[in-house]
C-alpha cells in the first residue's frame, strides 16, 4: 500500500493500514486564479464510511476544493483520487459512484421534480428509475411534489428534491456544499437525519462543507479547518474542542478564523 507520507493522517496508522483505501485522496492540491491563491498545497483523505467536514469562513477555499474534487475546476497543481480513480485521467469512472448537492446549483426550473429525477436517473444509468424515484420520493417526503415544477418549490422542498438527485445513484461518495443553508431549523434537522440514515445504511463517504458547527459536530467524524486556502488544523470535533480549550466547535472555528487560536497547530 502506498504510504501517503504528506497527508493529514485522519485515522491512526494501524487502522489506516488495515482499512480499505480512502474514498477520496487529495495530495498537494493548489488552485490559483490570476493572483489569488484560492487553495494552497492542501492534502487530506476521506476514509470509507466516514464523514469529513471542511470548515472555514467565506473565501477560505472550501467550495474551490470541493469543485476540484468534482472536476468542475481544474487544479493548478496536485492530484485527486476518488474511489481509486484519478480525477485527471479517469473521472468518468468515479462519477458513476459519486454525487453532490449544493443549494448554489439548481436543477431546471421548468421541469417537474419527477422529470428532473428521471433525467438524472438515466444519466447515472440507475436500474428501474421509476422504482428508485418512487422510493426516494417516499423517503424524502416528495411524493406529493413529484409533478410540481422544480421552480415552484420552497427552499426546503428544493433542498429535498436536490437531495433526491444527490442520492439517485446510491453514491459511495457524496460531496455536500452547505446542504442546509437557508433552511429553517426543523427542515435542516430533518435533512441531517436523512443523511445520517443514508450513511448508516450504505457505508458511504461524505465530504461536507458547512458553516453550521452544530451540523458538523453531529455529522462529521473528522473536520478540516481551512483559512486562506490552507488547512490549518484537523481532527475529531471533540479533540479539537478540548485541544483549544473551548466549549464547542463554533468557538474553535471563530478562534481559528479570527487568528486568535491559543494553540498553534503545526500542519503540513
Amino acid at each position: 500500500m502506498r504510504l501517503y507520507s504528506n497527508l493529514i493522517v485522519i485515522s491512526n496508522i494501524s487502522a489506516f493500514m488495515n482499512a480499505p483505501p480512502p474514498a477520496i485522496v487529495v495530495e498537494n492540491l493548489s488552485k490559483t486564479f490570476a493572483d489569488l491563491k484560492a487553495v494552497d498545497n492542501v492534502s487530506f483523505s476521506v476514509p470509507r464510511g466516514e464523514t469529513v467536514g471542511l470548515l472555514g469562513g467565506n473565501g477560505a477555499g472550501k467550495t474551490t476544493t470541493i469543485s476540484m474534487i468534482l472536476g468542475l475546476v481544474i487544479p493548478t497543481a496536485g492530484t485527486i483520487t476518488v474511489l481509486g480513480h484519478s480525477m485527471a485521467t479517469s473521472s468518468h469512472l468515479a462519477r458513476r459512484r459519486m454525487n453532490f448537492e449544493s443549494p448554489y446549483v439548481d436543477m431546471p426550473k421548468r421541469l417537474t421534480v419527477r422529470e428532473n429525477l428521471t433525467v438524472y436517473a438515466r444519466l447515472y444509468s440507475v436500474p428501474k428509475p421509476r422504482h428508485r424515484i418512487g422510493q426516494l420520493a417516499a423517503d424524502l417526503e416528495l411524493t406529493d411534489l413529484l409533478d410540481r415544477e422544480f421552480g415552484t418549490l420552497s427552499a426546503g422542498q428544493k433542498t429535498r428534491a436536490g437531495l433526491a438527485k444527490a442520492f439517485i445513484n446510491q453514491p459511495d461518495v457524496l460531496l455536500l456544499d452547505e446542504p442546509t443553508a437557508s433552511l429553517d431549523p426543523d427542515t435542516a434537522d430533518w435533512v441531517r437525519s436523512y443523511i445520517e440514515s443514508y450513511l448508516a445504511q450504505h457505508n458511504a463517504s461524505i465530504l461536507l462543507a458547512s458553516h453550521n458547527m452544530a451540523e458538523v459536530e453531529r455529522l462529521c467524524s473528522h473536520v478540516l479547518m481551512m483559512v486562506q486556502g490552507r488547512i490549518v488544523d484537523s481532527g475529531r470535533p471533540k479533540d479539537l474542542i478540548s485541544h483549544y480549550g473551548r466549549e464547542n466547535l463554533e468557538e474553535v472555528f471563530l478562534d481559528i478564523a479570527r487568528g486568535q487560536a491559543t494553540v498553534a497547530p503545526v500542519m503540513q
Binding site: L72, M107, P108, S125
Partner: peptide
C-alpha cells in the same frame, strides 16, 4: 443556454455525462 439559464451546468458536468 438552457443549462446556463437554469444553473444546471454544474450538475451535468459532475454526472457521468461526457
Amino acid at each position: 443556454f438552457e443549462e446556463i439559464w437554469s444553473r444546471n451546468l454544474g450538475h451535468l458536468m459532475v454526472s457521468p455525462l461526457r
